[in-house]
Design a protein around this nucleic acid. Structure first.
Lengths: 351, 351
DNA sequence: TTTAGCACTCGAAGATAAAAAGTGCTAAAA
DNA sequence: TTTTAGCACTTTTTATCTTCGAGTGCTAAA
């Protein structure tokens, strides 16, 4: 357990370093952070904080820098998570209330807003469709050899895809298709489309196989692949001093490579953590590429159902207070809206 | 007009510089590019090429570097635009022939493929829907207060959007909607949805206004906004020596900012140029941010209709020969496939 | 018209030195 | 026991100078 003064010193160092990106000296703490002891006293405490592993020292004659563990302590114990101004609150409200037609749009807007408020790079991924219950499936014939499948889930997620055929198909076949799919799948999780349902179709619906097979394949493809990824404000990070190092900048661009981002966020989220907001600092990240960055994520959920994940990615020297405050507020706001949305039966005004 | 030797020297300098990123010396040209004159002779020619503005000199004791004008001459007069290997051709074929369901997918795959072949960053934007003729419009009721509109155009472009209502709507209203829209809009360009049609609806269809108004608004929104942008291989550029300069790297990331890319490519394409492939070298770009980069674009067209634009963005020291060769091949291949696709009536196998 | 030869220029790389910033420790003060 | 003044020590930063090498430009001859 740290005594009070050490806590204050750690906090001062973390906050000063977040602000200036320069190692913090004992003198600086006395002068700028109103801790009324001599610099020698501070130095002694700093040496101890370093011994416990909360601070690092770039070299002998530099000041101190928080270690990953130091940031962790700060985030867990010292951080003010209500660091958000009236203006910012107003801005978030305006943004989130703009006209939205789908859950994906909501995630996207939240992603953008978060990046704008925090000035860090944000990444959003749409909800994983997997576990959700199917509410309705529609098939629409487009021309003679093309079909559109529209799948609605309980949470208002809408997936649509185009299916093309080698031969003409007619309205009757489409109606049968609609009937079978709805009859067998309504109320079941999306994942049921693969597995038992597929087997059933193959065995019982032999006559329809020519139509059913491409449909199933295409739907499966869409459910697997189509996780939308939004990246916002990648350029903002490049103004940060840590991006002076070409190596860091390169790694960062590599991480934002869509393929990789998706993977990473999913790894992060799968790691049990059912906290509202998850913070991964530096080498706490299991992914090698992320070890010199920090990631803060939250998943917008409703009754345990995933509605999309949003993350902030930045240097370990990140303004945790600001990011976490903004996330908390956005998260809360999304939940309010969600409640409203469901109360109204999914019928927001389009105007 | 350049004499033969000067042409050869210019070509040697451009190609050597593209390969090594180092200023090229007179000695290098004699030794590595089989031009059988003394270095002094080459030096004299180089001085003249510099005087005409085709070469630049970083400083007195460095070799020469092509100027934007020099690259332009090279691209227009000296370039081998058939610089593509058997292997690469094969790879492109495989990629483009993979299962594709929509024009957007095709643009996306072509964008990815181009980046993979050239090792530069590529950007693709989906077709602008604007001018295309409407082939069919479908409305699908999803629940009681939600409608999906699906618009098919003559070229197989499919746009869909969700519309939400304040009040319940019924199947009858949807049928009326379908009838009116198709009756009035089939065979007309998409742009007709705004303007005369909108006025007509407001005047004649007063009874339906509550339903029609949100529909029109949402459709207009989708047609305006929803130009897909794909960026591929942004990380590849970061290995190029010009990206050692932080300033350059930063500008580049800024350009790839989705918003901006879209804008830029559309500016580039609006500049009359109805060439198959357009090359904009360094300060030939009107956009300030692009002046230290080169952009090569082509638009995949069918009967004058825009089916998507793909661009390569890289340093002015770009391997024009390789990029242009790859683009030419992809462009040609896309046109072949397009012909096939239309012949078959838009019915590719889904398998 | 071409080329050999050489003086000249400029940047890159290395060496040295002085300056600046901060710590760690010792010994004294509170 | 805790705090602090003071100072030696360490390490980075910055500036200046030198040297080295690469490459040109020009002159005069082939």
């Amino acid at each position: 357990m740290l005594d009070n003064r050490k806590k204050k010193i750690l906090q001062a160092i973390v906050e000063e370093y977040i602000e200036t990106a320069e190692p913090v000296s004992s003198k600086n703490i006395v002068e700028k952070h109103g801790i009324d002891y001599s610099s020698a006293t501070i130095r002694n405490d700093m040496a101890e904080l370093e011994k416990i592993g909360l601070l690092d020292k770039p070299h002998t004659s530099a000041g101190r820098v928080p270690s990953a563990k130091g940031y962790r302590y700060y985030v867990d114990e010292l951080l003010n998570c209500n660091n958000i101004s009236r203006q910012e609150i107003k801005y978030i409200q305006t943004q989130l209330e703009s006209k939205i037609n789908q859950i994906e749009d909501l995630t996207k807007i939240a992603t953008t807003t978060l990046s704008e408020i925090t000035h860090y790079t944000s990444v959003g991924i749409g909800p994983r469709a997997g576990g959700q219950e199917i509410q309705d499936i529609k098939f629409v014939l487009l021309g003679t050899r093309m079909l559109m499948a529209v799948i609605l889930t309980e949470n208002g997620l809408i997936k649509e895809t185009i299916i093309k055929f080698d031969e003409d198909i007619n309205q009757e076949q489409v109606d049968t298709l609609t009937y079978i799919f709805n009859n067998k799948l309504k109320g079941r999780p999306l994942t049921d489309i693969e597995g038992p349902f597929e087997e059933y179709m193959h065995q019982e619906m032999n006559s329809m196989l020519k139509v059913v097979k491409p449909v199933l394949e295409q739907i499966k493809k869409v459910l697997e692949e189509d996780v939308q990824v939004y990246t916002e404000g990648a350029n903002k990070s490049f103004d940060l001093p840590e991006f002076k190092s070409l190596e860091v900048a390169k790694n960062f661009v590599n991480i934002l490579n869509t393929e990789k981002t998706k993977q990473i966020i999913q790894i992060l989220n799968s790691e049990d953590n059912n906290q509202e907001i998850n913070v991964y600092i530096g080498d706490e990240n299991s992914d090698e590429a992320l070890k010199e960055f920090s990631v803060i994520t939250f998943t917008h959920k409703d009754k345990g159902k995933d509605l999309g994940t949003i993350a902030i990615i930045g240097p370990t020297r990140m303004d945790y207070s600001k990011v976490i405050s903004a996330m908390k507020y956005i998260s809360q706001k999304l939940n309010e809206d969600e409640t409203k949305r469901l109360d109204k039966g999914g019928n927001e005004n389009n105007e």
